[in-house]
Design a binder for these strands. Sequence first.
DNA 1: TTGTAAGCGTTATCAA
DNA 2: TTGATAACGCTTACAA
Lengths: 358, 358
Amino acid sequence: MSRTTMRDVAREAGVSIATVSRVVNGVDAVAESTRRRVLEAIRRLNYSPNLVAKSLVHRGTRNVALFVPDIMNPFFPAIARGVADAVASEGYTVVLCNTDDSTEPGPHFERLLRGNFVDGAILCGTAWDAAPLSELIPADLPVVVMDRRVPGLRADSVEIDNRLGGLMATRHLLDVGCRRILHLGGPVGVSTAEGRLAGYLEALCSGAADERDAAEADSDLITRGPFRAESGYSRTRAALESGLSFDGIFAANDLLALGALQALRQFGRRVPEDVAVIGFDDIYMAALALPPLSTVAQPTYRLGTIAGRMLMDRLDRSASPAQPPAHPQPEPKRVVLEPSLRIRESTRRERVQGSEEE
Amino acid sequence: MSRTTMRDVAREAGVSIATVSRVVNGVDAVAESTRRRVLEAIRRLNYSPNLVAKSLVHRGTRNVALFVPDIMNPFFPAIARGVADAVASEGYTVVLCNTDDSTEPGPHFERLLRGNFVDGAILCGTAWDAAPLSELIPADLPVVVMDRRVPGLRADSVEIDNRLGGLMATRHLLDVGCRRILHLGGPVGVSTAEGRLAGYLEALCSGAADERDAAEADSDLITRGPFRAESGYSRTRAALESGLSFDGIFAANDLLALGALQALRQFGRRVPEDVAVIGFDDIYMAALALPPLSTVAQPTYRLGTIAGRMLMDRLDRSASPAQPPAHPQPEPKRVVLEPSLRIRESTRRERVQGSEEE
DNA sequence: TTGTAAGCGTTATCAA
DNA sequence: TTGATAACGCTTACAA
């Protein structure tokens, strides 16, 4: 009834369990004849080693945990795939957990990380504070944070330059002639949202210094809320109904922008003629939108592979016996990638002035 | 340096390791005073139990494996989420593996299923044969198959009625006046693709019996190939270039349909006026396409939750000590869901005759 | 109510 | 080249 074990194989082959272990792992050197006998017994019994037992001895499952807010959100599958591919090359598999934007690590986190079920973890887009995290994460378990930052957490991180992205988006809108740009911002306190807003403000301020008629940085033009399409829809609708005037929208992500597009269409505003719209992320729906949505692209798959690699590096290091004497753990690494502008129909209109940029 | 164990807690609290186990698991009854001492020691030492060791004793990790072709394919995230939610309610987590349409189970499969790293598995859209699978899958490890069927494998399964879906799609096209319907089929031998094609043929044959001018079932109108957008594009383009005449397209999935839309646009064919197009799956991009794509919707999230639940049921059963005497394992269950027609712009034109169906 | 000790299925050390 | 045997961290009879 139960699965066959090494003991069974040993009995079948008439050798000790230690010898079976040796041939299974290919260590030590076994006489060719016994080796053959053992292999034969393994085949006959259809044996395969129990990795849980192995993990107990080695103190390492070859699993890593990946936490994302929601795998159904089109931003995350490519990241998940990137991580999976990166770690698969070292024989690791990924345990996927949806956090649903919970404000603190849940039971899954506890179970996996503290229960030794994974050797490392990647936190993507989580909204958890550094304090509870640092307390919960075992000292010997490497973690890499991506997308959102977790200020104060001592961990490797990968992200894009969100400020720069916000700057690029807003400058582009200014370039195509927008003067009053509505910002559909992300949640307050979330690093990605804050960065994009900072870029927006920076573009507006430096823009005003130009000779061109100053674009306005009006606090009425800034709204904050969840990164969801409905929120983009309702906030744009509210702006439209309140009679607020604006000729451009910079949405902090594509979902928000898609919602905005819908509201605009409903109110008979033409895009890009009446209002130009740009989003952030470049999820594939962006290219398919009506009209196709300009956006600031993130290299999601690559972000995933980088995070995966960083984790593998830490794992290799902690596995190697030779600890450098100075720091037991090297300083956290931080990689910041540059986003890139993807211009499509939603902002394509004749330039107001100069500034060639294709 | 190493993680704190029960032994440490026992020493700290001045009790035996068995007692610590008792209070951690809340069994047996411990004197309130010692219980408090143990709890206090746990807190001081920041102890949490090692689940790998626990799994070894209990012969069960609370993990299940989910195999999908590619989590980046928009059809799968909702399934993954459905599975995750269903199993999370019983304290299970999911290990995600991308199979990339490999023709046989890879090392991950071996590792996870045979290495006792998961208690069960869900195979979604895999293209593996029953023979290697049944040999590889341990007898005591429940598996549920979804999306594609694996003929000959003794396992629970969840799927939609693909033949019915093909029938509905084709009938709808006939209803809006199409007479020569190009079928962009999926790969040969894949159950979903075969089912949809069968429905297409059935609709055409029964349609011809009507008094209405017979729709043609021309073998030139049937193409087969991978479920990918590029394939839909190139096959449609080839049909267009060869001068083949058709006034409707039934694509075996949305990705194929999206590709077809692109080719049609490039050749100046109007959709739906010149050719009506319908897809299959209802991935969210479908609604955002240009024009919005009619399609046969699959309840993906629900498919996932059902598969997850089926697996949980098997797991509960195998955990319970009371084995029914007759069959050690009850017969495989099979649930087949009905797809539903989602009509959008890509087929919206005046009906040719009767057949109200909104 | 508590402790001792025998597993769970491996690996690894030490003798033989 | 092989075999005992003590871990790995926990659960669970069985005794006390």
